[in-house]
C-alpha cells in the first residue's frame, strides 16, 4: 500500500448536474509511466485538475506518497512534488524562456530578502546554482540557444518543450503531461517520444500522460498500462495490446457496428 506514489480512490466530481468523473480509481507505483486516453469530454484533464486541486472533488480520495493531498493549495501540492503541463500551453508569454524555467526553482533556495539585496556570497551562490540547473533543463529540451527569447516568440513545438522544462524545474516526483503531442506532426511526435522517454528514464519521474496520438501513447506505455476513460468512468485498464483489442474501447472510440441478422 505505502509503496504507491499516487493512489486515487473512488474519485467523483459533479459539475452541476453533470458527473464529469465517476468513481475512478488509479494507483501508480514510483517510476511508472501510464497513459490516460479516452474520447473528448471523457474527463481526462479533469482528473489532472483534481490532482493539482484546481477543482475540488465531490467525493473520493487522492493520496500522494501516503498522505492525502485533498484540499491542499496548488502551490503546496507543487512543493510536495507534483507538476504538470497544459493542454493549451500556459507559459508566461512576456517572460524569457530562461525566466519561465527559473520560476520553477522558486520555492527551493533559502535565502533572505536582505541577502538578495546585499548580494551576499550565499545568495549569489544559490543564484548561480539556479542558473546552472535552469540551463541544464533547457539543454535537455534543446532550448539552450533560445534561453533569452521571449516565450511567446518561440514556435509552437518549442513552447511545448519549454513547458516541459518548466514543469521539471519544480523537481517533481510525479509529472502530469496533458496532451504533449497536441498539434504536432509525425516527425515532431517521434522527437517528442524520444524526449519524454529520455526524461522518464534519466529523471526517474512517475508520469501520467494524456494523449490523443495513439502511436505516441502505445509507444511510450509499451511496458506499462493505459487507463481508458469514457464519459467520466474507467472503461478499461491494460497494456497497449490489450487496450487495442478491447471491444469496449473500440466501441467507445468508433461507435457500435450496426448488427445485421
Amino acid at each position: 500500500m505505502s509503496e504507491e506514489i499516487l493512489n486515487i480512490k473512488n474519485l467523483t466530481v459533479d459539475f452541476g448536474g453533470v458527473r464529469a468523473v465517476n468513481n475512478v480509481s488509479i494507483a501508480l507505483q514510483p517510476g511508472e509511466f501510464v497513459g490516460l486516453i479516452g474520447p473528448n469530454g471523457a474527463g481526462k484533464t479533469t482528473i489532472l485538475n483534481l490532482i493539482t486541486n484546481a477543482i475540488k472533488p465531490t467525493s473520493g480520495e487522492i493520496n500522494f506518497k501516503g498522505q492525502s493531498i485533498l484540499g491542499k493549495s496548488p502551490d503546496r501540492i507543487c512543493q510536495l512534488g507534483i507538476s504538470r503541463t497544459f493542454q493549451n500551453i500556459r507559459l508566461f508569454p512576456q517572460m524569457t524562456a530562461y525566466e519561465n524555467v527559473e520560476l520553477g526553482f522558486h520555492s527551493e533556495p533559502h535565502y533572505s530578502l536582505a541577502e538578495a539585496f546585499i548580494r551576499t556570497p550565499h545568495a549569489r551562490k544559490i543564484e548561480i546554482d539556479t542558473r546552472k540547473k535552469a540551463m541544464e533543463l533547457l539543454e535537455i529540451v534543446n532550448l539552450k540557444e533560445h534561453s533569452h527569447a521571449r516565450a511567446s516568440s518561440l514556435p509552437y513545438g518549442l513552447q511545448r518543450r519549454l513547458e516541459m522544462a518548466r514543469a521539471m524545474a519544480t523537481s517533481p516526483e510525479l509529472l502530469l503531461l496533458d496532451e504533449p503531442a497536441a498539434g504536432m506532426n509525425d516527425d515532431e511526435c517521434n522527437d517528442l517520444v524520444q524526449l519524454i522517454r529520455q526524461i522518464h528514464t534519466s529523471m526517474k519521474y512517475t508520469i501520467i500522460m494524456i494523449e490523443h496520438h495513439m502511436n505516441v501513447v502505445m509507444d511510450l506505455c509499451r511496458d506499462s498500462r493505459i487507463y481508458v476513460l469514457n464519459l467520466g468512468s474507467l472503461l478499461a485498464v491494460g497494456s497497449p495490446t490489450e487496450i487495442q483489442n478491447n471491444p469496449d474501447v473500440i466501441r467507445a472510440y468508433l461507435g457500435e457496428r450496426k448488427q445485421h441478422d
Binding site: S73, D75, C78, Q79, F86, R90, L103, G104, H106, A169
Partner: peptide, 10 residues
C-alpha cells in the same frame, strides 16, 4: 493560477 501551480504561494 499557473504561477501557483509552479509553486508560488498566492
Amino acid at each position: 493560477l499557473t504561477a501557483s501551480l509552479m509553486g508560488i504561494n498566492n
